[in-house]
């Protein structure tokens, strides 16, 4: 565990909690892509199946449980409790265009052809593109609320910090996971446009490029 990894995890947690609190406090999920949140719930579910098979540390287990619980709570708020405020008309990204190719790729390119490993690989690939429905939705409506931009900032920051963590681990621990690194680079690149706007527009609600 290094400082980049820890701050990366905390950024991830911050993003998840920011979104959950925003929906809870405003009693509304307007501007939030339910499809992205469903994909993230699927990401956590398929990645953390190793909760049943291996124990790494108390930290590892608790964070996994928190991530899963929060992501399901978010999906529940969007599709059940505050369904009336969900902006489904603008959430029109075709998720099958992500899930099907990602599923195929995880069968073809993985560390080991076993069910758990393929599901883990699937989750890594899917996470790298799971934000696309949200970015697509923002590009359609042309604007995102300030709090939504904070959410996106922390989501992007999390993966960027993981990249630094992997460089650190490569040099100091000899650790290198090509699948995670390539997917992490793709994921971070998706946020670059957004990072630029977030910083130049004074971290307030801003229009994003189509």
């Amino acid at each position: 565990m290094n400082i980049f990894r820890l701050t990366g995890d905390l950024s991830h947690l911050a993003a998840i909690v920011i979104l959950l609190l925003k929906i809870w406090k405003t009693r509304s999920c307007a501007g939030i892509s339910g499809k992205s949140q469903l994909l993230f719930a699927l990401v956590f579910t398929t990645r953390y199946l190793d909760l049943f098979t291996s124990f790494i540390s108390l930290y590892n287990t608790s964070m996994k449980l928190i991530y899963i619980a929060c992501s399901y709570a978010t999906v529940y708020l969007i599709y059940m409790k505050f369904k009336a405020t969900y902006d489904g008309n603008h959430d029109t990204f075709r998720v099958e265009f992500l899930v099907v190719p990602v599923g195929g790729l995880s069968f073809l390119v993985n560390h080991d052809f076993s069910p758990l490993e393929i599901l883990w690989t699937f989750s890594i690939y899917l996470e790298s593109v799971a934000i696309l429905p949200q970015l697509f939705m923002i590009s359609k409506t042309g604007e995102a609320e300030t709090i939504t931009t904070h959410y996106l900032f922390f989501q992007g920051l999390y993966r960027a910090l993981y990249l630094v963590n992997w460089i650190w681990r490569f040099y100091f621990e000899g650790f290198f996971d090509l699948i995670a690194v390539v997917a992490g680079v793709v994921q971070t690149i998706l946020y670059c446009d957004f990072f630029y706007l977030y910083i130049t527009k004074g971290m307030s609600g801003c229009a994003l490029p189509a």
Binding site: D50, Y162, D177
Partner: peptide, 10 residues
């Protein structure tokens, strides 16, 4: 090489 049963990252 990554040992598939020892994933400590989230």
């Amino acid at each position: 090489e990554v040992r598939v049963d020892e994933k400590d990252e989230l």
